[in-house]
Design a protein around this nucleic acid. Structure first.
Length: 285
DNA sequence: CATGACTCCTGGATGC
DNA sequence: TGCATCCAGGAGTCAT
């Protein structure tokens, strides 16, 4: 599922293949893919025709493409979204939602999304940072991310540590897979209360988040199947490096105990019962 | 304001 | 074999 490393991999591919090209026309093939564009699909296509893509930027799991008009195309892959560069002659994908044709007659940009949780929209005047995603925190690989502020904000929360890692307004780019991996590396169970963590413990956890994201980018992202691919349709191979996610019943790579799976926030959480003991019932005043 | 439950969606896997 | 059900989860919305 696309988290920061997967989205960053896509960003790099788009930056290489789309920057500097002028859009000729846009075809919206499914209204849900542009549901965040309130003015509708026809307007979406209208304002993009004849515009040149200046850059490809990312905040957390969001992408945006600044245009020569000062607007920007915002994109989110959701659960199953793909941004693919394809020759015009390539057959349409079964879940093709939006097609961008360029004036140079080079490869088309296609937004393909089976589950339609993702989507595209145009942000008016959003070239620098779209207002629609200004609430998303910086990610831990951003040079301007403040470790000290993160430690303070995390310890001020009254929630569980995994919920905090998944809160994109606190730290962005982390999803279910990398949250579990970072918590395993840190030896913390996801239900540990944030306000009981020490400053050094939060700093250690942040270091592990950073490490796992960096390693995954190097590997080209994680993929369990063909659902997530880069702009050339290729899968990353970080799934070979996962220590807990999807490994229920298999031995912990640190201590050998069988990895457990628990329901958490309406999804699965994987952890080592020995390295990541559940917190005792919290005693709060 | 902070927190957390609910909801959107499709198709592969699973169960009877 | 076929049909029904479950499951994956990012993030906006809404209730508390």
């Amino acid at each position: 599922m696309p988290e920061l490393p997967e989205v960053e991999t896509v960003r790099q591919g788009l930056a290489r293949w789309v920057t500097g090209r002028r859009i000729e026309s846009v075809e919206v093939r499914h209204p849900r893919a542009v549901r965040r564009h309130v003015a509708g699909g026809a307007h979406f296509a209208d304002v993009l025709a004849d515009r040149t893509v200046l850059d490809v930027c990312r905040r957390g799991k969001y992408l945006w493409l600044p245009l020569d008009s000062g607007d920007a195309v915002i994109g989110h892959l959701g659960m199953s979204g793909q941004l693919l560069l394809q020759p015009a002659a390539a057959p349409d994908e079964p879940h093709l939602r939006v097609r961008f044709r360029f004036t140079d007659d080079g490869p088309e940009l296609r937004f393909v999304d089976q589950r339609t949780f993702g989507g595209l929209s145009v942000s008016e005047g959003g070239a620098t940072l779209p207002a629609e995603i200004a609430h998303i925190a910086r990610d831990p690989l951003d040079p301007q991310f403040s470790d000290a502020d993160f430690v303070t904000a995390m310890r001020r929360r009254r929630t569980e540590v995994k919920r905090a890692l998944l809160d994109q307004t606190l730290i962005s780019g982390v999803g279910n897979i990398y949250a579990d991996e970072a918590l395993w590396r840190a030896g913390l169970h996801g239900t540990r209360p944030t306000d009981a963590l020490t400053g050094p413990a939060v700093r250690r956890l942040l270091g592990h988040v950073r490490d796992v994201l960096t390693e995954a980018i190097t590997a080209g992202g994680t993929s369990f199947d063909a659902l997530y691919v880069n702009v050339n349709g290729e899968s990353g191979y970080f799934d070979r490096s996962l220590n807990v996610y999807g490994r229920e019943g298999q031995p912990c790579r640190r201590c050998g105990a069988p990895i457990r799976r628990e329901a958490f926030m309406n999804r699965s959480s994987y952890s080592c019962p020995r390295c990541q003991p559940r917190p005792r019932a919290t005693l709060r005043g």
